[in-house]
Amino acid sequence: MSEADLQSREGDPLMIAEEWMKSGRDVAIATVVETWGSAPRPVGSHLVIDVEGNFEGSVSGGCVEGAVVAEAAEVLADGTPRMLEFGVADETAWRVGLSCGGRIKVYVERLG
């Protein structure tokens, strides 16, 4: 509607990613692309990460963000997207899991 209404969407990860990009920062975008069981954030949720490890948004209730941020550094370095899977079923593959018992798949890509 008005500009004031749009500004009320503060904290919007994709808007933040665009601002970061405009200010010359390298940005990675993580997106929840699939969920099983009681996943904390719905499919389509974003976490955006810059090269210094600053991040905005969320892909879980805080359980796996640390691991995603670490992986984003690799994605920013080599430019290759990665598909990450988190959940109780993958405890051997991943140090972190979702305490709620759900599983999520997170796609991490570089912007540009």
């Binding site: 749009l6 994709l14 808007m15 665009e18 990009m21 975008i29 890509e109 570089r110 912007l111 540009g112």
Partner: peptide, 17 residues
């Protein structure tokens, strides 16, 4: 993500499309 895609997407979102 293509930076142009992000710009286009955000522009549409600002227009409530």
């Amino acid at each position: 993500m293509d930076p142009l895609s992000l710009k286009k997407l955000n522009a549409l979102r600002r227009e409530r499309r």
